[in-house]
Design a protein around this nucleic acid. Structure first.
Lengths: 171, 171
DNA sequence: TCAGTAATTGAAAATGATTTCCATTATCAA
DNA sequence: TTGATAATGGAAATCATTTTCAATTACTGA
């Protein structure tokens, strides 16, 4: 049985790897070790949760609940700490839709979402990931990124476009 | 003397109106009254502070300090309440650069900034308002806004573009 | 001009997301 | 296997923002 347990009452199962992706469930291990971080069970659990929910915009607490389903020993503090590491490493992007809590999305990995363009209702908080104009946006954004990187000496890691307004119900 | 005082110890001075702008210091009064809100001294002070600092990205507390210089009787609670009204009316835009506090910028009025495109350092929090590519961005964004408004039945009020990364010092 | 009335206010308390503290536990290089 | 040290979880602390509430104020109609 591909399960092992620890004193904390955690259990790590093997993750199903979708066919067609070049990188397995532990694609991030090299990132961690190169940066001097250790591979721990809580971190594996958190990355598993992020990978399995890459199309959602989970908050830290929602990630905690998600992790908690399978690894009840992992604490909310560790979720926050791990997310900070992941954001700093550029593996995860932190969004803010104005509802007072940060939201997180995988930037790299087997289920990474690469397009972070949103339509946000400022009243009810509904978020739509729109995928129209990807190509046109990409062309312009790449050009802008190149120019800004050089002019302002920034090492640009990501970008976002956000339209805000009122959705049909809230108008 | 163009100053009057109240029981709260407030003092409202006349505001210098820059020549060349079509709208005076009270351009927002109609917005407030049409929406059923009253014109009060604290609200005048807060709009004055926003107008005089339109190129900065002030937090609620910074706006409070700014207001406090001339109107020491105005409380932080009122600053928050007024900002919420202004954001809902579309006169002010609320940003979040990831440092845990919201930032506010005038969308309308004599000193309004219309271009909300930023380059943010995720380490030190430095924010650069870049003005390159305004025309090209505008063309594409207007087109996207039109299509998204119709498709998703949104009443879009504003947009933002944000590039995140590390500045020269933090690399 | 002058109340009457409901909106607005400031201070203090409450809230809620995130961080810090610290004693315990787990990872991994030697 | 072991020891140094990184990582952990729970509790407490922090900090931005919101709520509560009694006092004050702005605007309405007389």
């Amino acid at each position: 049985m591909p399960t092992r347990s620890t004193d904390l009452g955690l259990a790590l199962s093997e993750v199903e790897v979708p066919r067609g992706f070049g990188r397995g469930p532990r694609w991030w291990c090299a990132n961690f070790q190169d940066a001097g971080f250790r591979i721990t069970l809580p971190r594996q659990a958190i990355l598993e949760a992020l990978t399995n929910n890459s199309t959602k915009h989970l908050s830290a607490e929602e990630i905690y609940f998600e992790v908690h389903k399978r690894y009840p020993g992992v604490g909310l503090t560790t979720v926050y700490r791990t997310l900070e590491i992941l954001v700093n490493m550029g593996l995860v992007f932190r969004f803010d839709f104005g509802d007072g809590k940060s939201r997180y999305e995988l930037l790299q990995g087997p289920n990474a979402v690469t397009h972070h363009h949103h339509l946000v209702c400022t009243n009810c908080g509904r978020v739509i990931d729109y995928t129209e104009f990807i190509e046109q946006e990409k062309g312009l954004l790449d050009k802008i990124e190149k120019v800004l990187s050089e002019k302002y000496k920034f090492n640009i890691k990501s970008h976002q476009i956000q339209f805000s307004g009122l959705c049909e119900k809230c108008k």
